[in-house]
Design a binder for these strands. Structure first.
Lengths: 242, 242
DNA sequence: TCATTGATATTTGTATTACAAATTTATCAA
DNA sequence: TTGATAAATTTGTAATACAAATATCAATGA
């Protein structure tokens, strides 16, 4: 192939180069998490750049959650938090939000969540159980007209199960999806007849299965629950669907 | 409660406030994707801030992939790309990498991938099939001592299946996990007896099932394949495990 | 000795000015 | 219309100055 006309010069700005250098060092733990970076002035001297360029590089890193900057104190390497890791994912889904994404979300939930419930039934601890029970109680008492609260509680119920797997990857994978549920729900203009009853019934069934550490039952009830959700969206969101 | 002594002042820096304002506007599509932002000078005037503060805000946004800045031209709103969305997730997993994470990865794969293969069997197109077939051919020819290449091909095989679901959420969920496989593999000091044969055998089985659009078979073969992987890691990575 | 206070030094945040470098736009000639 | 050139526009970097938050340390008082 002709490499003659390959892209010329990465065209990285100075501050981008600095950003990469520091990111690399953090990644390789040459700059350990929690350690304090040299002051701006010292870094300027080391890198041989102006304070402007250096600061813009550090703003980038701080925006991504790799360093924390405190006025008067200094700049510190911070391990990426889960929230930092998924923030842009949240934003991505949020901006992609449309009927297509809704269909994809439902599909993924049916693909993943039954097994998640099954694993949760094995791994759950006492704390998870009381969280789930609280959630169910609140859901019972929730004003049927308060769609938003209902959606939030529903969302939280499923997130709690995801966390109960004790596998952070499960949580990370599902959390951005769950955070869209309230928005999905709000598209269904009004209450669906019998919807609350169904949700409550299945949340209780799922809870009982998880409580009894019955993996199979938890898996199956979750699958049935999500099947029903699919039907509702199919009905009320007439459009190209799964 | 005494609210008298509650935390005072959000302590957001000026540039952080600017960042949020612009992010909000982009999120709400008041600033549509592709649109050109006013020049730095104009924005400084609008916001009533210095160029320093404004620029640092925009560096933050550009670091996150929300705006693209071109010297001499201007600043443009860009839709978040998938790569932007998962870059920090990759970094997060990369920095978390340890035996625990390996165990969690394997667990998640066993949880999710069988159903993914099942869906892929339904949704796959001709292109996917030839990609998979190519992959298998290369795997056959791959030098058994070239562990890295073998791991890359294995990685790619599974990613291709994830993409074949035609569901980007599946892809986004799995890609950061797959990208860690080569690193995991490198921990197993040498070739595992019969490992390549097994992988090849099951990749072929899975391929055939997907080719024939046999959802059940694809699901089950993938489950068996991953069970075997688990056993290997259990054996060679003696330590606390699933 | 210990805790509190207050002054001082250190460090990051913002503003301003100046110029460099890349791109875009306008101008003009063929 | 096309193409080249010049001018204007726009972002990138540097340097300086000061504000504001924090950290450090000495002095004070019980």
């Amino acid at each position: 192939m002709d490499d003659v006309f390959r892209k010329i010069g990465s065209q990285l700005t100075l501050s981008q180069k600095i950003e990469r250098r520091l990111e690399e060092a953090i990644r390789e733990k040459k700059l350990p998490i929690g350690s304090k970076l040299p002051t701006e002035r010292e870094l300027c001297a080391s890198f041989g750049v102006s304070r402007t360029a250096l600061r813009e590089a550090l703003r980038r890193l701080s925006a991504r959650g790799l360093v924390k900057i405190t006025k008067g104190s200094g700049m510190y390497v911070t391990g990426l938090k889960i929230d930092d890791a998924i923030r842009n994912l949240d934003l991505y889904y949020d901006m992609q939000f449309d009927q297509n994404l809704i269909a994809q979300i439902i599909q993924v939930r049916r693909l993943f969540e039954p097994n998640i419930a099954g694993l949760a039934a094995i791994q759950r601890n006492q704390n998870d159980l009381s969280d789930l029970q609280d959630n169910i109680e609140k859901f019972k008492l929730c004003d049927p007209d308060n769609i938003q609260l209902e959606a939030d509680l529903d969302n939280k119920f499923h997130l709690t199960i995801a966390k109960a797997t004790r596998n952070p990857i499960v949580q990370i994978s599902m959390e951005p999806i769950y955070s869209l549920l309230p928005r999905m729900r709000s598209l269904i203009y009004a209450n669906v007849e019998g919807e609350k009853d169904h949700t409550l019934e299945y949340h209780i069934k799922i809870f009982n299965a998880i409580n009894e550490q019955n993996e199979t039952a938890a898996t199956e009830f979750m699958a049935e629950h999500l099947k029903r959700t699919t039907d509702i969206y199919k009905k009320y969101l007439h459009g190209a669907f799964i």
